[in-house]
Design a protein around this nucleic acid. Sequence first.
RNA 1: GUGGCCGUAGCUCAGUUGGUUAGAGCGCCGGGUUGUGGUCCCGGAGGUCGGGGGUUCGAAACCCCUCGGUCACCCCA
Length: 423
Amino acid sequence: MFRAPVGMHDVLPPESRAWRDLVAAFADRAERYGYELVVTPIVEHREVFERVGEATDVVRKEMYDFTDKGDRALSLRPEGTAPVVRAFVQHRPTVPWKVWYVAPNFRYERPQKGRYRQHWQVGVEVLGPADPDLDVEVISLAHGFVRDLGITKVRVLLNSMGDAGSRAPYAAALRDYFLGHAEALGDEFRERVETNPIRVLDAKREDWQDVIERAPQLTEHLSATEQEHFEVVQRGLDALGIAHELAPRLVRGLDYYTSTTFELAGDALDAAQNALGGGGRYDGLAEEMGGPPTAGIGFGLGIERLLIAAAAEPGGTAAPSRRVGLDAFVVDHLGGLEAAIVLHELRESGLRADRAYGGRSLKAQMKAANRSGAPYAIVLGPEEVARGEVSVRDLETAKQVPVPREQLVGWLQLRLAPPGAAE
RNA sequence: GUGGCCGUAGCUCAGUUGGUUAGAGCGCCGGGUUGUGGUCCCGGAGGUCGGGGGUUCGAAACCCCUCGGUCACCCCA
């Protein structure tokens, strides 16, 4: 028997209902903010990703790489930003370019709770403006969406990585500081400091924490411009009533970030996988990909983690226990084409209808009608059809009434309309 | 990549110190008279006990390997 590859999973009904609702809610909110859908390939030239994170685990150890039949070195997308920026550079749409996406990401690592080899993200990217007001908008979009899902236990962690000018000297200062303690902390520590001293800031190793906590902070080394930008972002969030915490050691897992970075920490999740998502500015990335110097900002949120977090809260969105969606279920006690014709009419007039198949007994069809969640069963029997009628049974009250065949659609539409919608 | 725990019907699980044809609940299918669901009653289908090897007269139970799941580390969504 075959099964899905390690760390990958299927999403089936009824769990997929929550999935569908989540994506719909995200699309709805993003569009309210002026974003439009972008769809990019799940495969890119490997260099697209290598460009964004040569020093990161995501690119160094976790990429799904392969060579195609034309000897091209390709990779499955490990994160959402690089493909969108590549598309921006390729097509040069006018700025500001505001897009949202829902897409799978692939990372070759050992799966565990809330961590999969294929996981899905919803997210947005904006290319163009370096305006700090945009940082606030993007963070409020992410925050608002998470709240839409009924997730209340969420903290917005905020940091600034500085620009290229302030970051290089900071990285050097940090390296010196860390190397001063490397003797005591061993080879692994030294190695990681050499590779990327900034990344060491968010290491979780207990025995490193003392040294890390006393390390010089990014935000102390910001240029005046960056400092000002960071403060405008904080004031903007305050103005919108979005609580946030400064997290000076928040270092995102990708190298392209500059300036504002943020993470949404879900406290209903275990500490190990508590990141619902995160993002930040990447003002140098478009240029690095061969495009014009263009500021950028975005975030990605993990769908699987959002669903875990939502399920952990009483008010969180959960799959409805009863199947929703159908308006009517056609029960055929005739045989022949009559049932198919009635169904066709219902569906063509915009109603949602289904039936049972395979000539099952009336009893079995009624059971199926009940299970379908439809409020009405449309019973077609010889007696009704002879009179030019159908029997419509209200499955809630068990009251059954004859309805003239040609009035069926109108009869249903009248009763299915939400209260007050008629006027 | 490293380590802990766990693999028995579609799902959740029983299975007594290794001992005959491996069980339950839920779900599914059918029936409870001639055209009607949700409750109830009856019946049925469905399992190479993850796979391979070994120990034994005898293995779902014990041992080894392997695959898979899960959790943790690293790192991340």
